[in-house]
Amino acid sequence: MSEVKFTIDGREITAPAGEKLLWVALKHDIYIPHLCGIQEEQRPGAGCRLCFVEVEGQAHPVTSCTLPVREGMAVKTRTPAVDRLVRSAFELLLSDHRLQCGKCPKNRACALQQIARERGLKLKLNRLKPLQREFPPVDDSTAVFACDRSRCVLCGQCVWADQQVAKVGAIGFSRRGLNRTVSTFTGMELADSPCTKCGLCVEACPVGALYFLDDNWKNLQGGQTPKGKI
């Protein structure tokens, strides 16, 4: 594949033509906020709306997970328009996320915290009120890991891990609008579903919606995967 040269924030970068900008930037240690991006996915879902960048010559910010790199393009990861969209998308996600970082198993390892840190955003609501809505009870039926939908950001990483990596198909997206959720077929408990407890979905979760219940969690934080032990 042919290589192309272009710039991100003025830095000259070479990458294979057609590769999506988000992954090229991350590879070069240029941070762009993202939750739903999956590098292997043929057609990115582009649902989280956090990875906006500005390309010289284009009037509006575009999502970098869907942007193929081109020869000579000049990309900026921080502009007033980009920052405004990221700030709004982030605050919108927080408004529907149970914000009790101290009690969250993902505290300090959470993608939302990383975005806040990198972009100087606050982990609290500024303009918006929290959406008061009911979530199904925490599903800890597997005794290995738990699913708390009040922390879910609907990024779909767990669904990809379950369906495309583990090839199990225990979970998927269901319902629509504000009720969109990750669920098992008919919403049964995970223990009753085809779930094999492989833990790939838990590892994939960037926030604290899926978390291990026993010591395996600590192993994960130590950088080990708990897969073999379950």
């Binding site: 709306r49 956090l50 709004s88 408004s95 009120k129 629509r176 609008g177 504000l178 009720n179 969109r180």
Partner: peptide, 21 residues
Amino acid sequence: TQQESCGKCTFCRLGTRHMLD
């Protein structure tokens, strides 16, 4: 439109709801 939002993307799913509120 809020009720017909599919819920896939952050802005439409949550943004329209906050506007409605």
